[in-house]
Write a protein that binds this DNA or RNA. Structure first.
Lengths: 257, 257
DNA sequence: AAGAAAATGATTGAATTTGAGCAATTGTGA
DNA sequence: TCACAATTGCTCAAATTCAATCATTTTCTT
């Protein structure tokens, strides 16, 4: 909405990151005089960047160290629809509270979300995604992997073995991805092992939150992984009104990010 | 820059760690004068860092976590004794045939081995090591992770949860690492969860192969993980004749790489 | 061009951090 | 075992930083 403002703040953010890369730690005062803006503005910038997981905040300044390693890691298909997925991930982040126990499914949208979790404190994170595990390795959160057979295509752990651990845990919220989503057939994916694990994960969560960009809507993949009714909240970037109304009438909250 | 800038929390923490890496143990007084802050502040820092597992506290001062000193970050550790570990790993590779089902433990020596496995065909690899999993992600081998709680220091999956999958599988050969190895106390490691997983893994293997460089010999860490008699083959880079004879007489084959 | 919306900078009270003093605890050596 | 010294955790005041608020400026929309 305010594109030229964004350019200015975006420029500041770039310079903040650049300065932090040079000098690991900087105080609010140092940064403020380096950029020629007031400390109030800088605090607003730092807090906003921290909430988006771009840096670590502490009393008196900021640092990049904690999540510096994650920056360049894995830029596969994250480029594709990066904007939309980032927005969906940020909306999902708002649903997470400190001390929550959550499940993270595979997929690049959820990988986006994983990178933002540094902004939260003391989470218990259960996941079958090897990439998410990699991102969260140094996060300080409690991290539990489901185990199971590794599927190279999605880089997730799937199949009957994965259910052994999964079935013995319960989480507050499960953040799920999907390959397809239709009114008639519900959720679907391409691999039977993957579907098996998804179904078990969704059963073990008090609340199921589906992250799906608009390209997934109307697609029916190969194996069914659940009904739309299993989803408590759908977060997407765009959705036809008819489908939106239908979902909301059947009890699924829809968030357009 | 501003010359009179008080040290920020993050800055102090970095310098504390850096000082401790140079000088294993430091007293509160030494650290306080080295950083130019009061002892009260330093105690608060040390206690906070201790709670986060970054160092060990004792009456009068602090030291790097007993484990951290040994296990540290992988990039550092892989350099250390790289020659010896590479030779041990190559000797271990000779014991693996195509189509084998094997278990890979954590540790940098075994990570070396994992990197060599591209030379083999159609292996089934079970592991609790996240680093090994990353190395083998694109290898084309069948890869199974045990699951369990992630332990940052060793980057492995440990604890009771890991046993659920482990106990339902059987492998031909288990390639194990260790932190300590003595005639009297057998194998030992620093974490109870880690020990639990190691014991289960060794039980599920027809043949247990221990990879340990000479720095591990004579060391007794914290938790016992098994007897020397549980080991079928020991691969190391150097071993005193007395110990070698003793092992061979009790049925453990010794390979000096 | 006028009005609405957003960003910025200053101000103020609240919250956090720091350092010093003091009682309680721990470790040490006789 | 006892006493002595050192270390620790605690509380309190001073200093710093933070979050919230508001006037002002800038930018966007109509």
């Amino acid at each position: 909405m305010v594109s030229s403002h964004r350019l200015l703040t975006a420029e500041r953010e770039q310079r903040i990151l650049s300065l932090l890369r040079q000098t690991d730690v900087m105080s609010v005062g140092e940064l403020s005089s380096a950029l020629g803006v007031s400390q109030a503005t800088l605090r607003r910038d730092l807090n906003s960047m921290h909430e988006r997981g771009m840096l670590s905040r502490f009393h008196g300044g900021a640092t990049l160290n904690a999540n510096a390693a994650q920056e360049q890691v894995f830029s596969d298909k994250e480029q594709l629809l990066g904007e939309e997925k980032a927005r969906i991930a940020e909306a999902a982040l708002q649903l997470i509270s400190d001390h929550d126990k959550i499940y993270l499914d595979g997929g690049s949208t959820i990988l986006h979300l994983a990178k933002l979790l540094t902004a939260k404190k003391d989470l218990t994170i259960v996941t079958n995604s090897l990439m998410a595990a990699f991102v969260l390795m140094e996060s300080g959160h409690r991290l539990i992997l489901t185990g199971g057979e590794f599927r190279a295509l999605s880089r997730t752990l799937v199949g009957p073995l994965s259910a052994q651990i999964l079935d013995s845990l319960t989480v507050d919220k499960a953040f799920m991805g999907t390959l397809g989503l239709t009114l008639a057939d519900g959720l679907s994916t391409s691999d039977t092992g993957e579907a098996f694990t998804k179904r078990h994960a969704m059963q073990r969560a008090r609340q199921v939150i589906l992250l799906a960009d608009h390209t997934k809507v109307g697609v029916n993949s190969f194996v069914n992984t659940g009904k739309l009714g299993d989803v408590d909240i759908l977060i997407t970037d765009a959705l036809a009104d008819t489908l939106k109304n239908h979902l909301e009438q059947s009890g699924t909250q829809v968030i357009i990010a």
